[in-house]
Design a binder for these strands. Structure first.
Lengths: 368, 368
DNA sequence: CGCATTACCTAATACGCATTAACGAGCCGG
DNA sequence: CCGGCTCGTTAATGCGTATTAGGTAATGCG
C-alpha cells in the first residue's frame, strides 16, 4: 500500500507560474541557508529550544539571515493547516451583529470579546443568523457554518436548541453568552440576575417600600425568569409576600401598562415599580411613560427601578435605580472559557456579578 | 528518488485524538456516501460540471445528504492552501474594532460591510491590529494573518504602509476604506468630500451669503484637503473670491476661534461660517460655542454649516446644515470592490457621494 | 579502545482540499 | 465482436508548514 507507483503520474498544478515566485517558501530559505526545510521551520517557529531540540547558533543565524534577505513571510493557511488549528473563534448571533435600527446590539459584549480574543491569539469570525454566507447553506444546517472556527460563542435570547445541541454533542467547543440550561452539556457565562434583582428589591424595601410591582414581558428566556426569581427572592427576604400578583406579565407593555392602570395600582398602595430590561426595553418604556402620563412624580410619589440598563436612546433621562450588566467582562469571560474548552478543558459555566446602580428614580415612599 | 522507503518511518501526529472528531472531513463524508474523497470535493465545490466532469444525479444526492448529515464544513485553511477560495473576507482595523470610546468606532462602516458581505456570500473575519496573537506576531508580520482570507478590508487613519504595500505587491486583494493614494496599487473607496463641500457652499450662496469663512484644523489628511477644495470650488462656482483669507486654519480651534474674533468677522461682513468635521469635532465645537458666546443668533444673524456629521454628544443640538457621509454605503461599496478584486477584477477605486443635509442652522443673511 | 551519550540535522511524513491522469463500464458503428 | 467513444469515478498527487523518528558526527566514560 506504499507509494510504489510514484513517478508514474504527475498531476497537480503547474510547478512554477512562469516567472519568479511571488512569495518565497521555507524550502527556498532552506536552500539559501544550506539547511533543510525542517530546520527552517524549527528556527522560525522558535519551537526548537522549547521542545529540547537544540539548534546551533550558527545555523540559526544563517536561517534568519536567509529568511530576512528573501523577505520570507509564513503562509498562515499552511501554518494553520499543519497545526490543525485555525486560531479562529466564531461569534454567532441570531440577528445582524451590527443592526441598523436597534442600537442595543451586542456591541458591549463584543468589546470584551474582541479584546480577550486578541489577548488569547484568536481572530474572530462573525456569523449572523441572517447571513447566508460561507459554504454552508442557510436553513436547517445554518449553524454548521460555525464549524470552520475552532470554537464558537453564541449570543442571543432565542437559539435553535436542537442545532446547538447537535454541535455540543459532536464535541464542538461552544460557549453561550447568557445562562442556558436547557441544552445539555452546553457551557455558558451568564450574569447573576437573581442576586442583582434581589439587591434592587432589598434597596427599595430598605427605603420603606412595602408594595412593589414587577413589570415583565411575556417571554420565558432565562434572563427574564432569573430577574423575576431575584425579584421574588428580594420580597421574601424582606418579609413581604411574593405572590403572583406582585408580577405583571404582559405581551405588549405599551398597551397593557397604561396611565390608568398605574393610577389604579398606586391607589391600591403600590409605591414602587420595577421593570425588566429586554432587547427593546419595552417594559421600561411603557412604565416610564405611563407613570409620567398618570401625573405621578418620581421619585416623589412612586419609585422606579430597572433590572438592567436603560436603552441608549433614553440615556439622557434620569438614571434609573437598578444594576449594570458587566457586558464586556461577560464577553471576555466567555472567550476565556471557550479558549479553555478548545484546549480540552472541562465544561465549567460561570456567573458574573452585576453592579448595583443607586440611580435617581427611587426614594422613600410618600407617607400620606 | 521515489518513495521506496515508505513504510519505514511513521511520524506525523496521532491519527485520531481518541474520541470522535469534532470536525468531519471530506474523507468521512466520502466513506458515508460510499464514494471517494475526490468525488465529494467535485460535488461540493460545484466544479464538476464546470470542468466537464459530470457527476450522476444519484451520486450528487448521496454526497450532499452525507455532508449535511455530518454537518460538514470545509476547512478554510485547507481550501486556501489548495489554491481555492474559502469565502472569508478579512476586516483589519488598526485599533480595536469595538472600542470602549464609541466615538472613534468603525461601527457605521461595519453595518454596511456586514450586510454586503452576507449578500455576497462571505463571512467576516475580524483581524484586530492590536492583537499580538494569532499566527503572526505583533509588529513586523502583523498584517500577514489576513492572508488566510480571500481578501481584506483595511480601516484606519494610521496604516503601516510598508506592510500594506507588501500585501498589495503580492497580489493579495486589498481594499482600503478611505482615500489613500500613497500606497501604490492600493484600491480604496472614499467619500466625495469635494462635491459635498461645494454643494454646501452653493446652498449658502443660494440663500444670499456673500462672505463665507471655512474653519479647518491644521491637518493634511486627504479628508481635510478635499473638504477645503470643495469649499473653494463652491465659492468660485458662485462667482465669489476663493482667496486664502476665506479659510482659517488653526492648530487649536478652541483657542483660535474666540467670541471676539467671530464678532470681528461678523462686523467685517462675514455672514456664514463653515467648519470641517474631524475625529474630535474640535472646529465645529469651537465655532458653535464662539458664536453663542458672541451673542450672535443662528440662523438669524449668522448661518453655520458643518462639512460632515456632528459628534454624537452634540446630537441633541439643532441639526447643522452640512452633509452626511454614507458610511454604511461606503462599507458596502468596499465589499463590492473587494469581491470584484477577489474575482480577478481590476483595481478601480471609488468615490461615494455624500448626501446634503439642509439642517436648521442656515438661513438668509440679515440685511441691515 | 569500544560503546554510550550528546548535539544537530534531515527525511519523511501529515494536515484537508482541489485537481487531473487514468481506469472501468457501457454503447456504437463498422 | 472489437476499437473507439462517452460517462462517472478513483488514485495519486501538490499546496506550505509542523512534527518526529532517525541518522551522523563529535564527545564522554570506563
Amino acid at each position: 500500500m506504499t507509494k510504489e507507483a510514484a513517478g508514474r503520474a504527475r498531476p497537480g498544478r503547474t510547478p512554477v507560474p512562469a516567472g519568479r515566485r511571488a512569495r518565497p517558501r521555507q524550502a527556498e530559505v532552506a536552500r539559501l541557508a544550506g539547511v533543510s526545510q525542517a530546520t527552517v521551520s524549527l528556527v522560525l517557529s522558535g519551537r526548537a529550544t522549547a521542545t529540547g531540540r537544540p539548534i546551533s547558533e550558527e545555523t540559526r543565524k544563517k536561517v534568519l539571515d536567509a529568511a530576512h534577505s528573501l523577505g520570507y513571510v509564513p503562509d498562515p493557511a499552511a501554518s494553520r493547516l499543519a497545526a490543525a488549528r485555525n486560531n479562529l473563534l466564531g461569534v454567532y448571533s441570531f440577528t445582524a451583529t451590527f443592526p441598523t435600527d436597534v442600537r442595543h446590539s451586542y456591541y458591549p459584549f463584543l468589546v470584551g470579546v474582541e479584546q480577550e480574543a486578541a489577548a488569547q491569539g484568536y481572530d474572530i469570525v462573525l456569523f449572523t443568523g441572517s447571513s447566508s454566507g460561507g459554504a454552508g447553506a442557510a436553513g436547517a444546517g445554518a449553524l454548521n457554518r460555525v464549524r470552520l472556527a475552532d470554537g464558537c460563542l453564541f449570543l442571543g435570547r432565542h437559539v435553535p436548541v436542537d442545532e446547538l445541541h447537535r454541535l455540543v454533542a459532536d464535541g464542538f467547543p461552544v460557549v453561550h453568552v447568557g445562562r442556558r440550561d436547557e441544552v445539555e452539556g452546553l457551557a455558558w457565562v451568564g450574569a447573576d440576575y437573581v442576586s442583582a434583582g434581589r439587591e434592587v428589591v432589598t434597596a427599595l424595601t430598605g427605603l420603606g417600600h412595602r408594595r412593589i410591582l414587577l413589570v415583565r414581558e411575556d417571554d420565558d428566556a432565562p434572563a427574564s425568569t432569573d430577574r423575576e426569581r431575584g425579584f421574588l427572592d428580594g420580597l421574601t427576604a424582606s418579609g413581604l409576600p411574593a405572590g403572583p400578583n406582585a408580577v405583571v406579565r404582559c405581551g405588549d407593555p405599551r398597551r397593557e401598562v397604561t396611565a390608568d392602570r398605574v393610577r389604579a395600582w398606586f391607589a391600591d398602595g403600590v409605591t414602587a415599580f420595577v421593570a425588566e430590561e429586554t432587547d427593546t426595553g419595552a417594559a421600561w418604556r411603557a412604565l416610564r411613560s405611563a407613570v409620567a402620563e398618570a401625573g405621578l412624580s418620581c421619585p416623589g410619589q412612586v419609585s422606579l427601578a430597572l433590572l438592567g440598563s436603560p436603552p441608549p436612546d433614553l440615556a439622557d433621562g434620569p438614571v434609573p435605580m437598578g444594576f449594570d450588566i458587566p457586558r464586556p467582562a461577560l464577553g471576555a469571560e466567555a472567550v476565556r472559557l471557550l479558549a479553555s474548552r478548545i484546549g480540552g478543558g472541562a465544561v465549567g459555566s460561570t456567573l458574573v456579578a452585576c453592579t448595583f446602580r443607586p440611580g435617581a428614580t427611587a426614594g422613600a415612599p410618600a407617607t400620606p
